[in-house]
Simulated assay, not measured.
Amino acid sequence: MEVKNSKTILLLSLIGALFFMFSCAPKAKLTAIKPAEVAMPGVKTLAILPFKGKYGDLVREEFYSKLDEVKHFTLQDLRYNEALDRIQWEQMDDPRFVPAFEEIQADAAIAGYVVGQIRDIKGYDQVQMKEGTGRYRKVKRKNIFTGKTEIVDEEIMKTVLKRVPYIVRTASLTASIKVIDLKTRKILATKQVTESFKQKYGGKEEAQGGFLGIFGGGNSIEQVPTPEETMSLLAQKIASKLVAKIAPTKYTIEVELDKSGPSYVKKGVKLAEKGDWEGAMEMWSVVLEENPHCAPALYNLGVAYEARGDLKSLLKAKDLFVKASRYGDKDIYIEAKVRIKRKIRDAQKLRRQKHLLRKAPERKAPIGGVQVY
Results as ranks from 00 to 15, higher is better:
Gly56Arg: 09
Arg119Gly: 06
Lys138Met: 14
Gly218Pro: 05
Glu155Ala: 05
Lys54Met: 11
Ser13Cys: 12
Gly302His: 02
Leu233Lys: 13
Ile167Tyr: 00
Val303Gly: 05
Arg86Ser: 12
Lys316Trp: 03
Thr149Asp: 12
Gly56Thr: 14
Gly216Phe: 06
Ala109His: 05
Arg342Cys: 10
Val370Gln: 05
Pro26Trp: 01
Tyr333Leu: 15
Ser220Tyr: 04
Met1Ser: 13
Lys330Pro: 15
Gln192Val: 14
Glu206His: 12
Arg358Cys: 03
Thr159Lys: 09
Arg345Gly: 01
Ala336Arg: 08
Tyr373Glu: 11
Pro248Leu: 00
Thr249Asp: 02
Pro35Asp: 02
Leu350Tyr: 03
Ala83Asp: 08
Ala297Gly: 02
Arg96Gly: 02
Leu271Cys: 11
Lys44His: 04
Gly134Phe: 04
Leu298Gln: 14
Leu301Ala: 05
Asp125Val: 09
Val287Phe: 10
Ile340His: 07
Thr74Leu: 11
Gln128Val: 15
Ala47Tyr: 07
Gly217Thr: 12
Ser196Pro: 00
Ala347Glu: 01
Ile367Phe: 12
Thr194His: 02
Leu233Trp: 05
Ile156Gln: 03
Phe215Thr: 13
Ile48His: 07
Glu155Trp: 06
Arg351Ile: 13
Gln105Ser: 12
Val160Ala: 08
Ile167His: 01
Leu350Trp: 03
Ala106Val: 03
Tyr80Ala: 12
Lys71Leu: 07
Phe145Cys: 00
Glu155Gly: 04
Arg342Tyr: 10
Val265Asn: 11
Phe20Ser: 12
Lys158Ser: 02
Gly42Ala: 04
Leu58Ala: 04
Ser325Leu: 04
Leu75Ile: 08
Val160Gln: 06
Ile144Val: 11
Asp310Leu: 04
His293Asn: 09
Arg163Lys: 15
Lys7Thr: 14
Gly213Lys: 08
Lys204Leu: 06
Pro361His: 02
Lys266Gly: 08
Ser240Met: 02
Arg326Gln: 09
Ala28His: 01
Leu314Asp: 01
Asp68Tyr: 10
Asn5Ala: 15
Val139Thr: 10
Leu75Gly: 02
Pro41Leu: 01
Gly309Tyr: 11
Pro41Glu: 05
Gln353Glu: 03
Phe22Gln: 09
Tyr333Cys: 13
Asn143Glu: 14
Asn81Leu: 11
Val164Gly: 00
Arg169Phe: 09
Leu320Pro: 06
Gly216Val: 00
Phe73Gly: 04
Gly261Ser: 12
Ser176Ala: 13
Gly16Asp: 10
Ala47Gly: 10
Thr170Asn: 00
Tyr80Gln: 11
Ala247Met: 05
Tyr113Asp: 13
Val168Ile: 14
Lys354His: 07
Leu311Gly: 10
Thr249Pro: 03
Lys250Asn: 04
His293Ser: 10
Ile33Phe: 02
Thr133Tyr: 02
Val114Gly: 07
Gly210Asp: 01
Lys130Ser: 11
Val243Gln: 03
Ala100Asn: 01
Tyr264Asp: 15
Leu271Lys: 15
Leu161Met: 13
